[in-house]
Amino acid sequence: MKSRFHSLFSAYRPQVLLQSLKPFSSTSTTKAIWNSKTNVIITNPTLLIMESCTTMLELKQIQAQMTCTGLIMHTFPLSRILAFCALADGGDIQYACLLFTQIEKPNTYMWNTMIRGYCKVQIPTIGFSFFGQMVRQCVEMDSRSFIFALKACEQFTRILEGHSVHCLIWKMGFDSDLLVRNGLVHYYAEGGFLSLARKVFDESFVRDVVTWTTMIDGYATRTCSDEAMKLFGSMLVSDVEPNEVTIIAVLSACSDKGNVGVGKTIHEYVQRRM
């Protein structure tokens, strides 16, 4: 089984793919929308400026300052530089890739950042190649590694890569992780593989509102309104409360069936409970 994983993932090598990749850089005038949330309390002045960075010009100035002071040698500051380049609207994914290749021992967060960054710019093949490298190099993975890999797979036209990630999830024992299972339900539902999504859903011993809503929305989106309504009924007798997104999905299913009566009932439920 190991050789099968490696044979698939070895086909995705960023060094080769980057040679044919057209430049993808944002201009220095582009304002960044950067999710810079971190649990770390930041007190260093340079890092505080980093958190409000908006352009690659500013980023390179900050990076130069970090290099002069030696701050760049520490993992957290370097990860913030990489995250801006890969994830900010004002970033530059190719610059992030160049920076990544110069990091001696990138941690899991850095690997995940590269996968996520290439998904963001809709170049899933390279994003998936980083996941493949993690597999080949036995890099420690966390739940987000699989979530971002599945996000890359959502942009492929075939299911082979997604199936391989699913097998690896099972092989590495992440199949009991709720976040990962929700990612699998979303991946299969988003691709229209509703029977596979439902299989993952049914095999989930723990389900939260995301699990239920993702499956209901998957049915509603694919005009399987009866299945969506039945599942919503099961949710109502479970210990999980629906949220606004759940209700929107259910109302979409009602609209598709033209069932005004059920729609009114759901409206009354919303008025009572939400």
Rank of each mutant, 00 (worst) to 15 (best):
D92S: 15
I247C: 07
G117K: 05
V262R: 13
T27N: 11
V16K: 13
M73G: 00
C85T: 08
S26Q: 14
P106K: 05
F84S: 07
I49A: 15
R198M: 12
M172V: 02
T30Y: 00
Y219C: 03
Y12T: 02
M66G: 01
L251P: 00
T265Y: 12
F146A: 00
S238Y: 01
L57C: 05
V185E: 10
Q122S: 15
T27H: 13
E58K: 10
S252E: 07
T46N: 11
T30K: 09
F84P: 00
L18K: 08
Q94R: 11
M172T: 10
K2T: 10
L78E: 10
S234D: 14
S225F: 10
F148R: 11
K199F: 03
I103V: 15
P124Q: 11
S52H: 14
L251C: 02
W212G: 03
S176Y: 11
Y188A: 11
W111Q: 08
L150N: 09
R144T: 12
A220P: 06
F131M: 05
R273I: 06
G70A: 03
S10E: 13
R198A: 09
L150Q: 11
V250T: 05
L17A: 09
D208G: 09
A249Q: 08
I33G: 05
I159Q: 10
E227M: 08
Q271F: 02
L57R: 11
L194E: 07
C97A: 14
T43N: 14
S145Q: 07
L179T: 13
S143L: 00
D208K: 13
R116P: 02
P45N: 11
T223C: 09
L47R: 10
G117A: 10
H6A: 06
I248G: 09
T214G: 09
Y269N: 04
A96K: 04
I169F: 04
E244W: 07
F232I: 05
V210W: 01
M141C: 11
I159M: 13
K60E: 14
R273T: 15
A64T: 06
E203P: 10
C68M: 14
